[in-house]
Write a protein that binds this DNA or RNA. Structure first.
Length: 445
RNA sequence: UCCUCAGUAGCUCAAUAGGCAGAGCAACCGGCUGUUAACCGGUGGGUUCUAGGUUCAAGUCCUAGCUGAGGAGCCA
């Protein structure tokens, strides 16, 4: 019996006869010589057949293989500088080949395709090497997020996906029928996190969230994954210190562990390499001055109009990009206007028109990747805020309770996973950062 | 929701000023012993998004709609 190996491990089997199981990624033949590129999920290896050496029925079978046919191949693993693949530099001299299923003509060719066509075939597209690499980077980012939090005393506490009340406004919620009652798909786990910190101190939730925003941009999905840490006794300053250590670890560890994949994607990682603490911090007011300066510098009238901004509103994406471009690292922007932010954010003492909130803006136009704040823990102030924006008090009764039974200062934030993946991989659109994207116009496959 | 652009072969695209609907790739057949999205020769492949209109004549012009892309707003 020859060992069944993974292509990723082929270097350990130089000179040995091995079996691989997988799919035909591409093939080419030159008369009496056939090259098969076979993938098995861990990598791609070139398999070679010479007509003179191979049994006729094996050679014939190899010649008739179609792209993405499934098969097993047994042969001699050997080093060869010319062999392409992942990891490459090794190939298999085929001795035996068994076709499991001869694939029908495969729609995705190794060439350019339009995005609509590719998205219609997303269930097949995930096999392509670029998509394969991106999704492997995604898995590593998820792992590094959890590793760092678990190692620093944060407890994973899951929050519900079906929820009775809105975190924010109901226009951006997906409503569902819950045995006759109105329920919503969660757009945040934060309120539950705030309950959980009183039990566990530092917690996080990590899962899919849902927003019914009619957003049609390169930065939005209807279903996206969010990691939300929440910490008792944390101030805004603690939050920024924690975030910069956390984000830096995610970036640096992923660069290390997925070097090959990032190279395949063609990512220039020089801008990622200097993502290390400390990150620059500027206030909303200073950011506004910076934008004003930027607007004066540019000669492009269109850009001038886009950068127009008045105090009190949140940044649009041209603003975020302009601010982030002024720094060579991610930048914290803190003390946003209270009116532009969520009801539970703590007002700054002596200046209640701004709140103790902070967003982290990524460079290269990737925009806001985290958003967080100190939460209001004074029950009277929170009740007042709930009333002010007209939220149903009953739905928030349990949330208000948290301030009656040992309320403490606390803070937390949300990290958008797909934006993180898009940033690390240098993607032009967030839809490639998730296996099966849900967007305004796509629910299939 | 608004602005801009697009929809032609399985895929990516072309088609002069309104005048016979084409190429490359893929598929199929043949050739080639080191290919890297191979190369060379051959074959088949069309409801030009839909509905109406103008015209001797519409892929091309007009009207309405559908679908998609890019951007804005909103947000992670």
């Amino acid at each position: 019996m020859t060992p069944v190996i993974q292509i990723a491990d082929i270097a350990n089997y130089d000179g040995q006869t091995v079996t691989i199981r997988g799919w035909l990624y591409n093939s080419t033949h030159k008369g009496k010589l056939i090259f098969l590129q076979i993938r098995d999920g861990t990598g791609i290896v070139q398999c070679v057949l010479f007509q003179r050496e191979a049994p006729p029925e094996i050679f014939e079978a190899a010649l008739n293989l179609t792209q993405e046919s499934s098969l097993t191949v047994t042969g001699l693993a050997r080093a060869d500088e010319r062999a392409p693949g992942i990891p490459g530099k090794f190939e298999i001299g085929v001795k035996d080949l068994h076709v499991i299923q001869l694939a029908e003509p495969y729609p995705i060719q190794p060439k350019e395709h339009g995005i609509e066509f590719l998205m219609d075939h997303r269930h097949l597209w995930v096999r392509s090497s670029r998509q394969w690499a991106i999704l492997r980077v995604r898995a590593t980012i998820i792992k590094t997020i959890r590793d760092w939090l678990d190692a620093h005393g944060y407890l994973l506490v899951d929050t519900p996906i079906i929820s009775p009340a809105a975190g924010e406004e109901t226009t951006t919620l997906f409503g569902i029928d819950y045995f006759g009652a109105q329920a919503y798909l969660a757009q945040t786990g934060q309120l539950y996190n705030e309950a959980n910190i009183a039990a566990f101190g530092k917690v996080y939730c990590f899962g899919p969230t849902f927003r019914a925003e009619k957003s049609k941009t390169r930065r939005h999905l209807s279903e996206f994954w969010m990691c939300e840490p929440e910490m008792a006794f944390f101030t805004l300053e603690d939050l920024m210190a924690m975030e910069e250590a956390f984000i830096s670890y995610i970036i640096q560890t992923t660069l290390q562990e997925r070097r090959e994949e990032l190279e395949m994607i063609g990512r220039d990682v020089t801008r990622l390499q200097n993502v290390t603490p400390p990150f620059p911090r500027i206030s909303y007011d200073d950011a506004l001055d910076l934008l004003k300066q930027r607007r004066e510098e540019t000669d492009d009238p269109e850009q001038k109009a886009l950068l127009e901004m008045t105090w009190g509103t949140d940044f649009g994406s041209p603003h975020e990009t302009a601010i982030a471009e002024s720094f060579d690292k991610p930048v914290f922007v803190y003390h946003y206007p209270s009116a532009a932010k969520a009801f539970y954010m703590t007002p700054v003492e002596g200046r209640p028109e701004v709140c103790r909130s902070v967003d982290l803006l990524a460079p290269e136009g990737y925009g806001e990747i985290t958003g967080g704040s100190e939460r209001i823990f004074d029950v009277e102030l929170l009740e007042q805020r709930v009333a002010e924006i007209g939220l149903p008090r009953e739905a928030y009764a349990w949330y208000l309770d948290l301030r009656r039974f040992g309320g403490v200062p606390h803070a937390g934030f949300g990290l958008g996973l797909e934006r993180m993946v898009a940033w690390v991989c240098g993607l032009s659109h967030i839809r490639e950062a998730v296996p099966y994207p849900r967007t305004l116009t796509r629910l299939y496959p």
